[in-house]
Design a protein around this nucleic acid. Structure first.
Lengths: 348, 348
DNA sequence: CTGAAAGCGCTTACAG
DNA sequence: CTGAAAGCGCTTACAG
């Protein structure tokens, strides 16, 4: 099939369409490559006549400019890299969708890197890829990777971090307002008449475990509700840890009437515990989560939770990136806090 | 900042690292560009000495070959496009993960196109992007897009379709064995002692609604269990339609003792209906779904379901693609059926 | 409004 | 084992 054995024969692939170059179009239209290039880019006036002729030829020949040649000249890949902690966690797909929505208007495409919930080593490789492939921008949705963020910055590539108030570096970021999420949840429980409001926290070392706990404490203080260690239990984000924590909470002499769980999985575990104990929700104990995962609506009783607008986070990240790409790096950095919403269902 | 006003100054971005070219390395190492290129590619022997020297210089200068220049020469993008129906449906993220796992070993990266569950128009645009950007391969995880598949083929780009026995075109595809999924589900219910086994189908016009129904019918026939219209209800994949269908089934004079639902969402709706009717599951009626979405394990009673190995589908698709990329197009096409597994939980 | 030519940063026959 | 040079398919000063 291939006429020669050596090297890469360009006819080896895309025999038809992709073989047509700007030169072929120029010849067929009786103009120069320069002119063809300009009808393509619009960077210089072309007479209506010539334009029409060239466009017609392009059409007939099925011309499509060689992306690499363009990229090589412009030094732009029109590609945004998304480095995600765990694409099977529903937060990230929504984020990806929002990102695509924001950047596709500028002919940007998203390159997906899924760390598979694995160790940080992969991020390093992903960043190397992003640099080599000259991504126009990168959104990093994974934490504790300041070194890699620095590499990107040194390579002159705009970065926006997502879900991170945690980075020490001066960078653009967008995140949910975790403190307010917790505070709003507590306020809701308070409006429902609850006074003994407990919490099941996530790990307090990082975002978002820490800010969600701070928000809980702040709201309780604002409401003049006393917080004792009786009201605080720690979980690990998992259903099982939520179950255990709820069992402990329920065993207290003065049982809380409501529990704010720092995420939905723990809240679902708490629901399990309530069922196990024969406590009805929300009558005996109200339970409230954060995230609004799909299962929140499917579980019984349906979980009241605070919805984090992942898609909007993605969109905002995309816009920040586009802004950086056109305006360039500066010393001032932008931070955006997206607005969450309370999804009131049955559990609180 | 920028010294000139006109044009794109290459120093405008990536001031440091990315400015270093193969020429710079050659000069610093006292060799030709040719040699540098060959230590990079390994396409020709280079004396150990020279190699060491060049590599040292590359390191010191932080050289990283310009991806576009390479791609332009090789006519390879090292990029696989994934066109997905709806990335927020958990099937697709897992697929993406498997795909990445399969192709990353060959230095391929995945470009994500999410159709956002929208109309087919987007797919056309995505395919255009994939062609322009010279994707080395495309996995199409969306149905009824034979026209676009044909465009890809005409452009000489390998395609593998996923979840589609539906395409009329002779192409590579990988899918779950929907008929066997249904048959295995029915067999399981039969082993549990059920004889009056009903089904809630999806829409029968397409994959996977149709093959899952065919599998149900086949298994019932194999087991010599009579199937009357009494045992068949149609749904639309949604929780609500599953609820309604189950209500109808439960109203039959001779109520079925088990229900095979063609997906988990409908099965969860059926669970809702059972609760509403005071039927206990699985004692009064057993319910079985397909997909194993996250919620299946979170719902009460936990849903017994057939797990579709999305990640493996992605991996298989990636392998098929890599094969096509290296072997080229041929007239024979490969089809792979991935193996599903029964997740036995509480509902059946 | 249009062209000839240089250049983007690589790869690879060709020649030694 | 190594180099000089042509070429990949575009873009864009420069010149008219």
């Amino acid at each position: 099939m291939a006429p020669r054995k050596t090297g890469l024969d360009s006819s080896e692939r895309g025999d038809g369409a992709s073989a047509v170059t700007i030169q072929a179009v120029a010849t067929a239209a009786g103009v120069s490559k320069t002119t063809v290039s300009h009808v393509l880019s619009g960077n210089r006036p072309v007479s209506a006549d010539t334009r029409r002729r060239v466009e017609k030829v392009m059409d007939e020949l099925g011309f499509s400019p060689n992306f690499f040649a363009q990229a090589l000249n412009r030094n732009r890949s029109n590609t945004i890299a998304l480095i995600a902690q765990d694409i099977t966690n529903p937060f990230y797909p929504s984020l990806a969708r929002g990102l695509q929505a924001a950047v596709s208007s500028r002919d940007q495409v998203v390159m997906l890197f899924d760390a598979g919930a694995g160790e940080g080593g992969l991020t390093h490789a992903f960043v190397t890829d992003a640099i080599q492939r000259r991504a126009d921008g990168v959104v990093i949705a994974i934490s504790d990777v300041d070194d890699d963020i620095a590499r990107l910055r040194d390579a002159g590539i705009p970065v926006v971090a997502v879900g991170s108030g945690a980075s020490k570096l001066p960078i653009d970021w967008v995140t949910a307002d975790d403190e307010r999420i917790a505070a709003d949840a507590v306020m809701h429980l308070h409006l429902l008449g609850h006074r003994r409001i407990a919490t099941i926290t996530g790990p307090l070392g990082h975002t978002p475990g820490k800010p969600r706990h701070v928000g809980y404490l702040r709201a309780m203080a604002d409401l003049d509700l006393p917080v004792t260690s009786e009201l605080i239990e720690h979980g690990e984000w998992t259903r099982e840890s939520g179950f255990e924590a709820m069992m402990r909470l329920a065993a207290r002499r003065d049982r809380p009437s409501a529990v704010f769980c720092a995420n939905d999985m723990m809240a679902i575990g708490a629901l399990d515990a309530a069922r196990r104990l024969g406590l009805s929700v929300p009558q005996d104990v109200a339970i409230l989560g954060v995230d609004d995962i799909d299962a929140a609506a499917l579980v019984r009783p349906a979980l009241t939770t605070v919805r984090i607008p992942a898609e909007e986070i993605g969109r905002a990240a995309g816009e920040l990136l586009l802004h950086r790409i056109s305006e360039g790096m500066t010393t001032t950095h932008r931070h955006v806090l997206v607005q969450h919403t309370l999804q009131i269902r049955e559990s609180a």
